[in-house]
Amino acid sequence: MKRYAHLLLAPAALLFQTLPGAFLYFAPTLAFGKKPIMPESWVWSVSVMSLALFALAGLALACAASYLLLTRSRRFVAIPLIFLCCVPAWLLSVFYLHGVLVFLVWV
């Protein structure tokens, strides 16, 4: 099992994307639901910081997974896994990253 641990990182990177998804689902309700538990003055900072962390962590995971697959696996294993797992994880991560940069008025 240990020998194939690097193969699990790519699905893990994709699976990680459920976290920002869950954040996008729950954060608005925490801030603006019927019983908000986050003060409105915190909403912007907490949300942007969280999205930035999710974006960067997602990028790092997908990059590491892709790197390990390319260096440790044969190409017919690496390439499909990269397309199936890393590319969607990258796409979602860069989408969140772009959102964060827009919200920060940096781009």
Binding site: L24, A31, G33, E40, S47
Partner: peptide
Amino acid sequence: VIPFFKWGTLLF
């Protein structure tokens, strides 16, 4: 409006 719209408008 729904919380997601309020949240998105504020963030942007």
